[in-house]
Amino acid sequence: MQIFVKTATGKTITLEVEPSDTIENVKAKIQDKEGIPPDQQRLAFAGKQLEDGRTLSDYNIQKESTLHLALR
């Protein structure tokens, strides 16, 4: 499925993911596309910060959802 990640600079990244993917996997995909190390990424959805060990389906993130990326 496709999801979107909006960066602090307003850029939107499109990612191909599975509901079973962990947040860690998603951060690795962002690193592949943007070169941002996962340990510098903070992802949020619906106002909640997402934890590495959880999956997209844990957070009820569905196709075409938009996550927000902040850098630490």
Rank of each mutant, 00 (worst) to 15 (best):
M1Q: 04
M1G: 03
M1D: 03
M1I: 13
M1V: 09
M1W: 09
M1H: 07
Q2E: 10
Q2Y: 14
Q2H: 12
Q2F: 11
I3M: 05
I3Q: 00
F4T: 14
F4M: 07
F4Y: 14
F4A: 08
V5F: 03
V5W: 01
V5R: 00
K6C: 03
K6Q: 14
K6A: 11
K6M: 15
T7L: 13
T7Y: 10
T7D: 10
T7R: 05
T7N: 07
A8Y: 07
A8M: 07
A8C: 04
T9D: 15
T9A: 14
T9W: 05
T9V: 14
G10P: 04
G10Q: 05
G10F: 06
K11T: 07
K11A: 12
K11R: 05
T12V: 13
T12I: 15
T12M: 14
I13S: 02
I13L: 11
I13K: 02
I13F: 05
I13D: 01
I13N: 01
T14M: 14
T14C: 04
T14K: 07
T14Q: 13
L15P: 00
L15V: 05
L15K: 00
E16V: 09
E16S: 11
E16F: 08
E16N: 12
V17F: 07
V17S: 04
V17T: 04
V17N: 01
V17I: 10
P19F: 12
P19W: 06
P19D: 10
P19T: 11
P19H: 14
P19Q: 07
S20M: 14
S20C: 04
S20F: 14
S20V: 13
S20I: 12
D21L: 11
D21N: 11
T22R: 09
T22D: 10
T22L: 08
T22S: 15
T22Q: 10
I23T: 09
I23L: 08
I23F: 03
E24R: 05
N25K: 04
N25S: 07
N25C: 04
V26S: 01
V26T: 06
K27C: 02
K27S: 02
K27I: 03
K27F: 02
A28F: 10
A28M: 12
A28H: 06
A28K: 05
A28N: 13
K29F: 06
K29Q: 09
K29C: 03
K29E: 04
K29R: 10
I30M: 04
I30G: 00
I30C: 02
I30W: 01
I30P: 00
I30V: 04
Q31Y: 09
D32A: 14
D32F: 09
D32L: 14
D32E: 11
D32Y: 14
K33E: 08
K33D: 07
E34V: 07
E34S: 08
E34M: 10
E34Q: 04
G35L: 05
G35H: 05
G35C: 03
I36M: 12
I36L: 06
I36Q: 03
I36H: 14
P37D: 15
P37F: 07
P37E: 12
P37A: 15
P38E: 04
P38C: 03
D39T: 05
D39I: 11
D39M: 08
Q40P: 03
Q40K: 09
Q40R: 09
Q40M: 09
Q41N: 03
Q41W: 06
Q41R: 01
Q41V: 08
Q41F: 08
R42L: 12
R42S: 14
R42G: 15
R42K: 08
A44V: 05
A44T: 09
A44Q: 14
A44N: 11
F45C: 03
F45L: 09
F45I: 07
F45M: 06
F45Y: 10
F45P: 00
A46D: 15
A46S: 09
A46H: 08
A46Q: 14
A46L: 15
G47K: 06
G47C: 03
G47F: 07
K48D: 08
K48V: 12
K48L: 15
Q49Y: 03
Q49A: 12
Q49L: 15
L50W: 01
L50K: 00
E51T: 04
E51L: 05
E51N: 06
E51V: 09
D52V: 07
G53K: 11
G53I: 10
G53L: 15
G53V: 14
G53S: 14
R54A: 11
R54K: 14
R54D: 10
R54P: 06
T55D: 04
T55I: 12
T55A: 06
T55Y: 13
T55M: 14
L56M: 07
S57N: 06
S57M: 15
S57A: 10
S57V: 08
S57H: 15
S57P: 03
D58E: 13
D58F: 11
D58G: 05
D58V: 05
D58M: 09
Y59K: 01
Y59M: 05
Y59R: 01
Y59P: 00
Y59H: 04
Y59L: 14
N60S: 09
N60G: 10
N60D: 14
N60A: 10
N60P: 03
I61K: 00
Q62T: 10
Q62M: 12
Q62H: 06
K63Q: 15
K63R: 11
K63E: 08
K63N: 06
K63G: 08
K63V: 09
K63C: 03
K63H: 06
E64R: 10
E64V: 04
E64W: 15
E64M: 15
E64P: 03
E64G: 06
S65F: 07
S65R: 03
T66D: 04
T66H: 14
T66E: 13
T66F: 10
L67C: 02
L67E: 01
L67V: 13
H68T: 10
H68W: 12
H68M: 08
L69K: 00
L69C: 03
L69F: 05
L69A: 02
L69Q: 03
L69D: 01
A70I: 11
A70Y: 08
A70N: 15
L71D: 14
L71C: 04
L71E: 15
L71A: 10
L71V: 13
R72S: 12
R72Y: 09
R72V: 08
R72N: 13
R72A: 13
R72W: 07
